[in-house]
């Protein structure tokens, strides 16, 4: 009796270790994700039903008052909101140009010439610069007084004169275009600035994709007489599908978070005409003259719902891909 070895007592933790281990590894990420992403989403949805200037009183209680769906009702009657929504769509549509243009440049650069690495790096350069710097540079570029466009215009339509105090000045038959101050063109001006780095990004995605295009298939297609456009359309592009998917995803995300360019180049102006939802939310809630946290949260919620549609599609698509394997 005494010689019987007692059964090793395994703890519950030990017995279930295979099931538990992955959760332990995911736990830190889950914790931070829920505290910094999931919770704020619900908090801001909650705040969107209040009118609140963001202040707590001396006792530390929030000064918010419940207004129900009033913030959303106001949104429906707010021109600025619809201008922002429209601009978001314009961004989405025109930002997509980055994908074909990126592909074109990638195809062009995908050759073996001496020094091609240098050219590739030069084309990739704008993506490495901070968005803020890109915004500043394009702001100067568009400046009607000293920018490139202004200078070209002056060369064509203006003459130098000596003004009343003897300094050199210019007099123009037509005053130069002020792109960032023109409500029709300002948004497009910012999108062009945003496209510059985005094209570089798509280009690099396609360049890596092109590396993986099977040369056997190209060889076979060539034997079958495929050239030019047909080669690209039926042989290359299908093999680039993963790169295209990724390029579209990052471009949509880039378009939706176009906040920094707008903040640098126009601050939503002139008179709100370059706002997108993200910037309008900032303006309403956090900027110097905005202390309407409830209203800002309502805008954020609408933006969130729009993104949710896109993200759900994206996740569904990924899920389908995984299943297909």
């Amino acid at each position: 009796m005494k010689s019987v070895v007692p059964p090793v007592r395994r703890s519950w933790l030990h017995q279930h270790r295979v099931a538990i281990a992955p959760w332990l590894f995911v736990a830190p990420a889950l914790l931070f994700f829920s505290v910094y992403v999931i919770m704020p989403i619900f908090q801001s949805i909650a705040i969107s039903f209040y009118e609140w200037n963001g202040l707590y009183n001396a006792e530390g209680e929030s000064t918010a008052t419940w207004v129900g769906t009033q913030n959303y009702v106001k949104l429906l009657d707010d021109d600025r909101f619809f201008v922002s929504l429209k601009n978001n769509l314009i961004w989405l549509v025109f930002y997509m140009l980055a994908v074909p243009v990126g592909l074109a440049i990638a195809l062009f650069l995908n050759q073996t010439v001496t020094g091609i690495r240098v050219y590739k790096s030069l084309f990739f350069f704008p993506f490495v610069i901070s968005q803020v710097v890109v915004g500043l540079i394009f702001g100067w570029f568009y400046n009607p007084d000293f920018g490139v466009i202004g200078s070209l215009w002056k060369a064509a339509y203006c003459e130098e004169v000596i003004n009343i105090v003897g300094n050199v000045s210019t007099r123009c038959a037509k005053s130069p275009p002020d792109i960032l101050a023109d409500e029709t063109w300002a948004t497009y001006g910012i999108i062009v600035a945003g496209l510059w780095p985005q094209i570089a990004y798509c280009m690099i995605l396609y360049l890596t994709g092109l590396n993986n295009v099977s040369s056997d298939q190209i060889e076979a297609a060539r034997l079958d007489g495929a050239r030019g456009w047909r080669m690209l359309r039926h042989v290359i592009l299908p093999q680039l599908a993963p790169a295209t998917f990724l390029a579209i995803v990052v471009t949509v995300i880039g378009a939706l978070r176009s906040f920094d360019m707008i903040a640098i180049m126009t601050r939503g102006g002139p008179y709100g005409s370059t706002n997108v939802l993200a910037y309008y939310m900032y303006e309403a809630a956090i900027s110097e003259y905005g202390d309407r946290y409830g209203y800002g949260s309502a805008i954020a919620t609408v933006l969130f719902l729009i993104m949710l549609v896109y993200i759900s599609y994206f996740l569904w698509r990924m899920y389908q891909d995984e299943k297909g394997r």
Binding site: Y142, N143, P144, D145, N163, I164, V165, G166, N167, S169, D178, L180, A181, G269, P270
Partner: peptide, 16 residues
């Protein structure tokens, strides 16, 4: 509309 108040000093200083 593209000038800050500091930028707007330039034409003033230049005599324009």
């Amino acid at each position: 509309a593209t000038m800050s108040w500091q930028d707007a000093i330039a034409p003033f200083a230049n005599g324009d």
